[in-house]
């Protein structure tokens, strides 16, 4: 795996966003989910054909200023400020889970800024018919079972791992809780911030990628999104859960890469 560089942007209102960046080519902004950002093989592979810029949500990693971001609207403004600071006129967005919700909100707010959107099991809608379970109230084993198709896979084991040393364990747990707390700011108590009222403003061609066995955000939501977005298509991968891009990486890369296409700026 290549080592991404860390680049920080100072934004208005005492907010600073730290990003991981790697690659060459058309810019793709990867917006991570409620578990936080890690540079993983999926992002690495993407960076072979794109410039991947992955911002840490304020309140996670080295990004600061969460206390100055009150709600989803403030968060969208923050990402607009970030795009100004990065300096690209038009970008592609890839959003996973909560990151998908943010990507859609950003695209709805400023459609001219976004070329294409790949939403991987995005959050943002809530239906009582197929509710998203309360992942903040799950014990670790239960949460993993809701995140991955195969709880005995190396990925699942990696996600459950914890340091042995006491001090490291304490720091690790605190980091996990800090990331959850930042995500909870935008997802609590139900992950619905009203995106349904704005979906029609998502003008960019949109791909929705879903794991067929996603137990966290059920695949039924794909149709709910498709109904609201003017130009959207769905791709479903079998034997994959909520972490589809890591559980079935080859297929995911093919679909997302094919959708984003070569650099055509």
């Amino acid at each position: 795996m290549s080592q991404p560089i860390v680049k920080e942007y100072a934004l208005p209102r005492d907010i600073a966003i730290s990003t991981l960046q790697a690659g060459k080519g058309a810019p793709v902004i990867f917006i991570h989910g409620a578990g936080g950002l890690m540079w993983d093989p999926f992002l690495d592979a993407l960076s072979e054909r794109h410039t991947v810029i992955a911002p840490f949500l304020p309140g996670t990693g080295a990004s600061r200023g969460l206390e100055n971001i009150r709600d989803m609207w403030d968060l969208v403004v923050t990402y607009q400020d970030l795009l100004d600071a990065i300096g690209h006129d038009k970008v592609d967005l890839i959003g996973h889970s909560m990151g998908g919700m943010i990507a859609f909100e950003l695209a709805a707010a400023e459609s001219s800024r976004v070329r294409k959107i790949a939403a991987i099991a995005p959050a943002g809608l809530f239906s009582e018919d197929h509710p998203i379970p309360d992942f903040f109230a799950m014990l670790p084993e239960d949460l993993i079972a809701h995140l991955v198709y195969d709880k005995d896979s190396p990925l699942a084991k990696l996600m459950m791992a914890m340091p042995d040393d006491l001090e490291e364990k304490v720091s690790f747990i605190i980091e996990r809780m800090t990331i959850s707390a930042a995500a909870a700011k935008f997802l609590w108590p139900i992950p619905d911030r009203g995106l349904k009222r704005r979906l029609h403003r998502v003008k960019a061609p949109t791909l929705m990628l879903w794991g067929k066995q996603d137990r966290l955000i059920p695949v039924a939501y794909a149709e709910d999104f498709k109904r609201g977005i003017p130009d959207a298509r769905i791709e479903i991968i079998d034997r994959a859960g909520h972490m589809v891009q890591l559980e079935q990486m080859e297929q995911s890369l093919k679909i997302v890469g094919g959708f984003l296409g070569p650099d055509r700026r």
Binding site: F136, A137, M138, L139, L166, V170, I173, I174, M177, T178, S180, A181, A182, A183, A184, K185, W188
Partner: peptide, 19 residues
């Protein structure tokens, strides 16, 4: 999980209690 929603306790309090 009901005892402690993420962000309910500050890192300072967490650190004091976790160890």
């Amino acid at each position: 999980p009901f005892l402690d929603a993420p962000g309910y306790r500050t890192p300072a309090t967490l650190r004091a209690g976790l160890r």
